[in-house]
Design a protein around this nucleic acid. Structure first.
Lengths: 358, 358
DNA sequence: GCACAGAATGTAACCGGTTGCAGAAACTGT
DNA sequence: ACAGTTTCTGCAACCGGTTACATTCTGTGC
């Protein structure tokens, strides 16, 4: 009844016998076709085809040490930010005839470490997106396997970096041009590199333009976090908010709509990432577009490069952000909403609350 | 400089030598601990621990034929519907100490077939979500590897089925209760099983309640498809529309908002899938919730079960849908929007346009 | 103390490939 | 036709485990 794998027993020996050559020749026909005479090659391939022979990766990897697999670890598969990266990475990997192992670390650094370690023996290298691990841990992992980071910079490890700070600069520039002077930032996870980058860009810009900045958070980088933060932003009487990511910005939009507060009339909202849903929200969300799929592709490329020439040093590839102006930003109203100035002061406290368990 | 893999050279032989036992004993210590004396076992494990020894999956799979991997193929990673399934499946697989290979078939049946074939040798089984392949092709694949389908029913192949038809019944029931009599259905891909199921449910219900149904499509199951369809629905003067999925429903919402048509005042909108974004849209989308993560988990379980006892026959596991009533549905206005009745007739033509290239 | 069953361990073949080395075949120039 | 290359091909060891079978312990009953 269970005839499967019956045909998968076709091994290199069957082909060799049938083609009347040695094992080695068949092996070379696949691995190094240049080494075998055209005529022989043709015969071998014909027989292989006839027998539906496919070299076993497991067996091959046993001797070569190469698996043809790449590991990809993301903090949350449900987050479209990572879906997009994954999509790009997966596609690029397939083009290079690599398979991808996927793992979701559930925004938990302990689990992340464990997952990478578990993957390491079965892959040629792993890509970690928005890692929550410490610099030392990542360097240690890089010693155990080939690593490429996405959205995280660590000395000695190749990485593709989305220019969050630059994106933030564009966002602030845009808001200032519209006339906003008091702007809120809704922070993401404290241990996230991009959050730090975005804040860094924000602060630099605020200083340069002597803006009034109110920082909220950290919050979980989800819709609910945005909803939560929305009320704080309103209370703090900012005329515009920039959210750590689109999911949170959408949460802000949603909460403000529920409260009857107009966007962009009463408050302007800017997101980050330009996930597909951003352009679909009401109002269409102004956001900083990050080349997500591309970053996934580039990460794979960096990894492949490193696999091809080990010890070729580490590369960092920056990818530019671009502000997408849509309908959620406009000049502020002249009149202030109401009440007195509330909210946290400009000098935001260092975050102490970690979102992810470590 | 490149010290990696230096430690990975720890093989079973090193452990055997150090523990002063034979290879076989070490092997058994890991594979069948019951076969080795407690004292010996302890010693072996201690040495293994000390040497950071981890059995090589590749080598093991070479003799056992088991890889410890599961393949997962989805039509579109960018679609939150599949992200959710993936998330559930990935988590369940990890619990069972299986790794998952991911592939995105880009809604292309040819690519899908190729991907499954490519995965087959490296996995113990594969799960195909919303397959676009023909029944015969799937049966053939099931002969080549262990298959579990998600959201697709094919004779002789295990599957987890989301009760789309039942969900549709609930949606229609809801709309009828609100007083809607002329309802539009915005169809998804013609070759999608769930689309057929949803239509089947729709028609049954329409017949039973003698409703006026207008079918549109097929459309690509994306936001843009919904935007496109929105205008058609308006022109057809339906008072409510049910979309093939939430993404499309959100597209409808967006397009209607752009045109100044009120939801639910002028038209009620119902989606399908209850993706996270559905509850975040404005207005919050009434939709049919499908247990997505759970379906991913169950698919893995079905597969594991089948791997444990091959030839145990095929199982089909149904998962119930549930209507989530939110703010996008309300009783219809008494007055009709305007103009004369336009749009396609009730008896929708069989779809002939395929979305996915085959 | 001995024969014997059952448990623990070792031996060696095997899984399906790759690859260094050596011998065979095909080509070169003379 | 022959020596000298260059190109192909085969042999055999090896990758890191598993497992059938053989062998050695261990404990038991008498």
């Amino acid at each position: 009844m269970d005839s499967r794998n019956a045909s998968s027993t076709t091994s290199i020996r069957d082909v060799a016998r049938r083609a009347n050559v040695s094992l080695a020749t068949v092996s070379r026909a696949f691995a190094e076709p240049g080494l075998v005479r055209a005529e022989t090659l043709e015969r071998v391939l014909a027989v292989a085809e006839e027998l539906h022979y496919r070299p076993s990766r497991a067996a091959r990897s046993l001797t070569t040490g190469k698996t043809g697999n790449i590991g990809l670890v993301v903090p949350d598969l449900g987050n479209p930010f990572f879906s997009a990266i994954l999509k790009g990475g997966q596609a690029r990997a397939r083009e290079a005839d690599y398979s991808v192992f996927l793992a979701d670390s559930e925004e938990n650094s302990r689990l992340e470490l464990e997952l990478v370690r578990a993957m390491a023996p079965q892959v040629d290298g792993v890509i970690i997106c928005s890692s929550r691990l410490s610099e030392a841990q990542l360097q240690q992992l890089h010693r155990e396997t080939t690593l490429v980071l996405l959205n995280r910079r660590v000395h000695g490890v190749s990485a593709v970096l989305l220019d969050s700070a630059g994106g933030m600069r564009q966002a602030i520039e845009h808001l200032v041009a519209l006339g906003h002077l008091r702007i809120g930032f809704i922070g993401g996870p404290a241990d996230s590199w991009s959050n730090r980058e975005r804040r860094r860009g924000l602060r630099a810009e605020a200083r340069a333009r002597s803006l009034d900045i109110v920082e909220f958070g950290p919050f979980a980088p989800h819709f609910e976090g945005g909803q939560h933060a929305a009320d704080l932003a309103v209370a703090a009487e900012v005329t515009a908010v920039v959210a750590f990511n689109d999911l949170m910005a959408l949460g802000v939009l949603s909460r403000l709509a529920d409260r009857g507060i107009g966007v962009p009339d009463d408050i302007s909202v800017v997101g980050f990432d330009n996930i597909p849903m951003a352009g679909m929200a009401t109002p269409h969300l102004t956001t900083v577009a990050l080349p997500l799929e591309q970053s996934g592709r580039v990460a794979i490329e960096l990894l492949l490069e490193q696999l091809a020439q080990p010890g070729s040093g580490t590369h960092e590839q920056g990818l530019a952000a671009q502000l997408i102006v849509r309908a959620s930003t406009a000049p502020p109203r002249n009149g202030v909403l109401s009440g007195s100035r509330v909210g946290r002061a400009t000098q935001a406290p260092e975050e102490t609350t970690a979102i992810s368990e470590s």
